[in-house]
Amino acid sequence: MNIFRLAGDMTHLASVLVLLLKIHTIKSCAGISLKTQELYALVFATRYLDIFTDFISLYNTTMKLIFLGSSFSIVWYIRNHKIVSRSYDKSQDTFRHYFLIIPCLLLALLVNEKFTFKEVMWAFSIYLEAVAILPQLVLLQRTRNIDNLTGQYVFLLGAYRALYILNWIYRYFTETHYVHWITWVSGLVQTLLYADFFYYYFESWKNNKKLQLPA
């Protein structure tokens, strides 16, 4: 565990907490894409199949449980909570899951570290995580007024990915045999998807203006 990895995980955790804060205290999920949240729940469900078979550390298991629990409860809140679900605008969140899920599944069947069920599912989860933010980014572009919490949520998610890249660079130079092409390439793609968002996020921050993405 290096500082970049820990900072990345903490940023990821912070993003989840920001979203839960919005849902719990403001009782709103306005501007949040249910599609993206459902994809994340699927990402964690398929990636953490090893949770009971491969013990890595207490930290690892705890974080897995947090990400699994939070992602499924967020989906539950947006879909089923009496008050929260009212703020969900289905007509704006139109991205189709299977446009992302099916190509990722096919790619996982072709490109994986080992052709076993668990490894194919793991590769699938890596590919899917890389593109799972797309429905959220599309929704942001359609939203006239992006509230601060939603902006911070997406920013923290992007920051988490950028920190993971630093973690890989660090690990590559400090560990022997540390080469993971699947995670590296997908992680790079995933981070690049945030580039546009980052640009407008920093612009709005610099100019002290409300965040708004151009159509």
Binding site: R5, D50, D54, I56, N60, K114, T176, H177, T183
Partner: peptide
């Protein structure tokens, strides 16, 4: 040491 297919990242 070969890490095999142990995925130690989250």
């Amino acid at each position: 040491p070969s890490e095999g297919n142990i995925h130690d990242e989250l």
